[in-house]
Structures are given as C-alpha cells and as structure tokens.
Design a protein around this nucleic acid. Sequence first.
DNA 1: CTTTAGCACTCTTCTGTATTGTCTGCTAAC
DNA 2: GTTAGCAGACAATACAGAAGAGTGCTAAAG
Lengths: 335, 335
Amino acid sequence: MLDNRKKKVLQAIVEEYINTAEPVSSNALTNNYGLDYSSATIRNEMADLEKKGFLDKTHTSSGRIPSAKGYRYYVDELINDKDISLEEIKYISDKLENKINEIEDLTKITANTISEVTHYTTVSIGPKTNTQLIEEIKFVLLGSRMMMAVILTDTGLVKETIIKFGEDINEKQVETINYMFNKKLKGEPIETIDRPLEEYLYDEMTYSVNVIKPIVEQIKKVLEDDNKIYLEGANKAFDLPEFNSLEVAKNFVNILDTKELVADMLNSGFAEDIKVYIGEENEKEQLKDFSVVTFKHKVNGKDLGTIGIIGPKRMDYSKVISVMKYINQKLNGNN
Amino acid sequence: MLDNRKKKVLQAIVEEYINTAEPVSSNALTNNYGLDYSSATIRNEMADLEKKGFLDKTHTSSGRIPSAKGYRYYVDELINDKDISLEEIKYISDKLENKINEIEDLTKITANTISEVTHYTTVSIGPKTNTQLIEEIKFVLLGSRMMMAVILTDTGLVKETIIKFGEDINEKQVETINYMFNKKLKGEPIETIDRPLEEYLYDEMTYSVNVIKPIVEQIKKVLEDDNKIYLEGANKAFDLPEFNSLEVAKNFVNILDTKELVADMLNSGFAEDIKVYIGEENEKEQLKDFSVVTFKHKVNGKDLGTIGIIGPKRMDYSKVISVMKYINQKLNGNN
DNA sequence: CTTTAGCACTCTTCTGTATTGTCTGCTAAC
DNA sequence: GTTAGCAGACAATACAGAAGAGTGCTAAAG
C-alpha cells in the first residue's frame, strides 16, 4: 500500500510531531531520519500521503500533522520497540521487585511506575473479582455487634469488610456462620455470593434474617467496590503543550473526574493485553481528542487489573508500549 | 477603627467581588447594599479604605478588589452566617443520616458533601490514630503463611492489615499471638506499638523474631498510612474565572498532587474547629494565591479527621463556614 | 522518469496605532 | 458632608501592515 519511502516519511513525521508538537515542515525532514532528499521531494511525498488520508494540515500553508489514520498505520506497521534506558530499567525493577506478592496494591504500584517512566497520566482499576474463586471466608467478631468478614481468593486477593448488627452476636454464632458460609462458598466463584438470600438460610433456620442479611449485603457491597479507580500523574498532563488550551485542560480534568467513563474505558477490549485507541477510535465522545492505551496485566494468566494511559494523540506510543511490555515480562518472571 | 459606612462599603465590595470576580466600581455600589449615596461619595470612601490597606486596585483606573487585609477584616468582623437553603439542608441530612456510624468513611463522606454544597474543592485526611486507645486487636490466619491483623480503637475506628510470613503458622500460634498482643496493648494508645521489638518478645521467647517482627512492622506501616488524603471536586475549580489563567490552573493541580503539602496544610492550626487562611496567610508559598478553610470535625470531642477547602481568595467564606457549622451540629446530634 | 531549484502564493503571527469605554481622582458647587 | 461633572488613566478591541514559514507548481537538471 505504501512504498518504502512513504513509510519512512510518515514515520518521520509522526515521530517528529510526537517530539515537537508542531506541524512538521518538509524542510525539517531533509537530511534527517535517513531521508536524503530535498525538501521538494519530501513535499511531493507529503502531498501524496495527505491525499491518501495519512496526514492533515492545520491550514493551507502549514506543515503536516498525522491524521488518526496516520497514527493508526504508525502504531500497526511502523512502530518499533524503543529501547528503555538503563536508569528506567533500574527504576522499574526497584519499584516492582518486592511488591510482586502484594496483589492488593500491585495495580496501583504498576500504574504509578508507568506514569513516572512515561510522564503520562494513568488510571487504573483492580482485578475483576467476580470470576475469582473463594478459597476461604472468615468472620471475626469485633466487640459485640460488629464483625469483620475476610474473603481470600485463589489469586491471592484479600478483601475485607466490616458488618454491623442491630443485635448482639456471640462467638458461637460466629463459628457457625464461619462453617456455614465456607460450606456453601468455598471453591465457588465470588459471584456466588449474589445468590438469593434463601440459599444461605436453607440449612440453618436458627439464624435470623437479621444476622444473615447484613452479612450478605455488606459483602456484596465490598465486592462491587472493586471498581475503585486510581489516578496517577494527573498534573503531568499540564506540562504538555496541547494543554495550553484551557478548553482541553478542562475537558481532561472532567474526564478524570467521571469515574464511570474511566471504568468503561478500562473495561473495554477484553482479551488483548495492550490495546491502543487513537482519538476518534475511543467510543466515548469526550475522549476523541485523546489517545488511550490500556494494559491488562496478568500474572500466570490471572487478571490482576487494568491500567490505562491517557495522553494526547501524539503520545509516544513506542515508549508506552515498550514500557508496558517490559513490565509484563518482569511481572511474569521472564527476566 | 472603621466607621459604620466604611464597614458597609467594605462588606459590599467583598461580597460583590465574591459574586462577580470583577473589580468593583463605585457605580456598582450606588443604590445597592443599602448604600444610598452617589458614586462620588462611595469613591471617597473607597479611596480611604485603600489608603488604610483594605482594598487594592489592579491598575490606576480600575475598580477595587479586597486586599488580604480586607478579606481578613471581612471574615473576622463583617461576615454573618448565611442561611442554608432548605434543599441544601435536606441534601446534607440525607447524605449524613445513616453514615454517622461508619467512622471509617465519615471524613470522606463529609468532605464530599461539603464539596457538593459549596462547589469548592476539598481535601481530607482521616483521624490521627496514634493517640487513640486500642480496644482490641485480633489476628486471623489466612491460609498457612498469611495473617490479618485487625485493630479496634475506642473511637470505633477499625484498621486492618495483611501480614505475610516466610514460614508456616498454625492456629495455636495465632491464639498465643492474640493473647500476647492483647495483654500488652489493650487499653494503650496506638503509638505503643512503636515500642522496640524486645518488649514484645519479653514474655514469650518461644516465638521467633521471624514471626513477631513482620507483625509489628506491618502494623506500624498501616497506622502511618492514616495520612491518606482524599480529594473531592477538583474539577469544580475549573469553573471559576480565576482558573482561566493556565498559570493558576497548573499551580492548583500541582498543589493537589503534592500530598505532603496538603497533609501539612490540614495538620496545621491544632485546636480550632474552623480556621481560615487567606492568601499570604498560608504558610506554604504555593498556596499564597488561594484561600484555605480547614475544618477539624469531631464527635463527642473525638478527632475524626480534618477537611480542607481550597478555593480562590474571593471564596464565599460565609457560605463555607455556615455549611461547616451546620454539619458540625448535625454530627454532634444537636438537631 | 525521478529529483531538485526557484518562485509565487497562502496563511499565521507579530507589532503598532487608533478607538472606545470604564472608572478614578479632583475640584467646585450645593 | 455630599454630589455633579470633567479630565486623565488604562484596558480592551479592532485593524492594518510587515515578516516569516511553508506549500504547490513549474521547469530544468540528473
């Protein structure tokens, strides 16, 4: 579809634009990026690329900027893995080294690491709990009318919540509840908890609904809560030149503040490990001026959460993807 | 110090400026705010107030804006409690009604409520744990090398953490640890946990340091963690006209991102319930263009956390303070 | 047939100037 | 003590012209 030189020109324009955020002129590319031609030749190529839809102009006599199609082609065909510097490798290694066991915070730490290395804003969301298997569920009495429930899953995730009662509870009751819930739920996926209340009461009618009901309700609530979204490096975005437009800056802050939007964004595109959405490719209207790269990180095939990078369309895709790939390797111990 | 009419003029200027964010002209005040004088008279008063340092000009022929001293005088002497609308009362009541028992989230919920009603950004920090008394401390075995510690304090706060071990632990050991720690710590202030390790080992040398050490370390870590800062309504700030300056907007985002700064801010000014810092009154250089109102909320004299409002210097102090006072009442059941 | 030099043309950005409107300060009259 | 009225200061806006950057096209060179 594109001959070799056109590819080179497109790549050069994308990379130059990523670096400078200024429309790229034909002159800027001559004797650069291995393009040993005069500006006129480059101009002819640019005109062709524009006709084919890979480039845009901001006005008739401006340099070119990549179109969404141009970025897409770049990401799909032209990108090459960027070498990560030694310092970056060291930084990433240090931060992740001892944390790999702390499943609860791993997504947060990883998101923070990515944000620090790439200088983009990241949002992250913990692992989906509902398909994980319950390994153990424990109830602990706290005082006389309060209880803590701790759920342990097969992936090593621990979720806990406090339950309050309108009546006194004793140790013996807690023991029975422990036994009862474990009998029902051990080895089952977490979503089992969503079953109707009667199922829990089937065996043991000795327990009043007053006791069982708050337990089930509170546990459900905590598990829904796994949609908590963490944000890292929001201020970094303000260093980018495109954020000099107050319009864009405001829009950006609003996006980050709309939790549902971010959650939807992170939950889309199931299977893939790393997925790139460029500008209009984002389903959400509000994101059409940004690019999003999502990264579902897993250890041994187990979902551990999703991290999203939000940045300008001229995001340094190569670096972002390289960093993600490296972290993925690291987490899965292939290094 | 100021005669009655001057007070009236100053109050009018502050309130007008709070509403419009535009320098207030002498004309705007005539036949308004109960000032039935010509613009020339108002001008004379304004000139006097400026000489005394209560007002500033942006340039020689502009209207007046309040100086820091002007705001301070307004807050100290001229402010009157603003009536909160019925809708607002209902909104606040509904949000706080059933949450008063959920100590863990109370600060967060309160901060969110304040942000919604006042339309300013709030930051909040949970209660200081170190002086609270330990009512009970429970250890629960999870699997064979993992344990959860739950600490219950006299104010009803629950803190929990997961501890991982390099060796297997059995139920019997957990029981002894439970007994041991409770014997040592029950009724003591939380900071007792900071004691040197030897104290925990004194009685029970049967337990290896491998077991006790991770427990103490992890508990310490969690309790330090009480400095977590919550942010509400950051995007609201961007609707204010002063945030049209990218400079200010950027500065603002950076402030919110600097956790230490925010923590310092919330922890200053010990005793008072509600404290107002206007512009340069803030200790931190970065905050000198903003005003901060801090609100230490308590129930029955127990510290439950601190909430800070960050807004422009022309913040609606009257409304902010009224809302805080109302919430304070509400939380303490005087209504 | 590909590449390049050169030039006309387009559009943005910057600078300077004139214009308008707002608001003050001051003076003189009430 | 208060007010009307006017001169002066300044911001904001609009407009014109010049400079600069970059393209598109043509014709010549390789």
